[in-house]
Design a protein around this nucleic acid. Structure first.
Lengths: 196, 196
DNA sequence: AGCGTAATAACCAAGTTTGACTACAGTGCC
DNA sequence: GGCACTGTAGTCAAACTTGGTTATTACGCT
């Protein structure tokens, strides 16, 4: 749980603060935390004894805001969780890879075009990232390691760009999708080989 | 939905077949489809009119197995879904990135060690992938594009390996985590700067 | 002064995912 | 023949996510 970590370094906080911080990191993209989940998570963590409510303030007739802070147990749990993620490699599910596994269901032309398009989109992303890396915003107003995360994305994106173009060429070159050993093997009748 | 695509090229199938195929692709890793979700998904897709049940056989006193196939509407929907994934770039949530964003909560030494470790794990993965790419198994018994997916993982993993080592060095070199512009800015008291 | 829009703070019901569990049939081993 | 084990097929309740909604206050504009 990511929320726990956030509460830990902003404590004491209330839900809305956490939400804003998450959105400002646009963390809904790379963590799986949508605004809606936050309050549920906070309550659950409290039930488990990892958080403790500090106070419940009420300003006018607005919804009461509850402020949380981390307990000793929560601190422990966070360390454990954090270490688990740091020491393990565990590749995240990627919808594109899933879609790519259905390659033979796409007409060759379209597949190649889509890959080229993807390469361009990635390049655009790289460009805009580089821009904000060079600009002073990330350079001076954010901790240094935020820039490092950008570098990771950059490296990944560049690797992927190259791959997209390589594969696009192969597809256009008309290589058969069925490998040598299984030209006439049965059970693959569902595949169109991109030539429908 | 990924299940739809699978049913589409294995039809007619029953749930267990789908499950086996998914596991054999170890798709529980890169798609988010655990065995438990399959039957629910099949039923839901049927309710939505994307699938149609073909028959319900019963062998002895075992659970009845229901066989499905794709309807015309399901075919359409699949095309739409597939294209959405092919033409969009949408980076998946990555738990490591999430954990990395808490870098300042880790002692410097450990962070560096963990990154080095990660680099090694990635290298090991690359190695074993390369091995199975060279072996005949992927080369001859699987469609060619499965090999291409391996190449993508490889490219990503190599990029990330390099990054890990670069960052590990920086961390060891003792750079401050706080960027120049915010040395004395308030509100960051929760950060330990890796020197607890 | 009046009015519309944005921000604040949270809730909730509905939909999804998950891991654990059931129950039976072959198969191999002693 | 008896027994343990693996493979087959699917169910289920509990946990988790999500997107939309409420209700009030502050702000800006004319």
């Amino acid at each position: 749980m990511m929320i726990l970590g956030l509460v830990r370094w902003m404590q004491p906080v209330h839900g809305y603060d956490v939400r804003r911080e998450l959105l400002s990191w646009s963390a809904d993209k790379w963590a799986n935390v949508q605004p809606g989940s936050i309050y549920h998570a906070l309550r659950k963590l409290t039930d488990e004894g990892l958080l403790r409510t500090v106070s419940v303030e009420q300003v006018g007739a607005r919804p009461a805001r509850t402020t949380y802070e981390v307990t000793a147990k929560g601190e422990d749990e966070f360390e454990t969780l954090l270490r688990a993620q740091w020491w393990q490699v565990q590749e995240p599910p990627d919808p594109f890879v899933a879609a790519f596994s259905f390659l033979p269901a796409m007409p060759r032309e379209e597949a190649a075009a889509a890959l080229r398009n993807r390469a361009n989109l990635l390049r655009a992303g790289v460009e805009s990232m580089r821009a904000s890396l060079d600009s002073d915003w990330v350079g001076t107003r954010k901790p240094v390691h935020v820039g490092w995360m950008f570098e990771l994305w950059l490296a990944r994106a560049e690797a992927e760009t190259a791959w997209c173009e390589r594969i696009a060429e192969r597809i256009e070159s008309g290589v058969s999708y069925l490998s040598d050993g299984m030209e006439r093997a049965e059970g693959w009748s569902g595949w169109t080989d991109g030539t429908r």
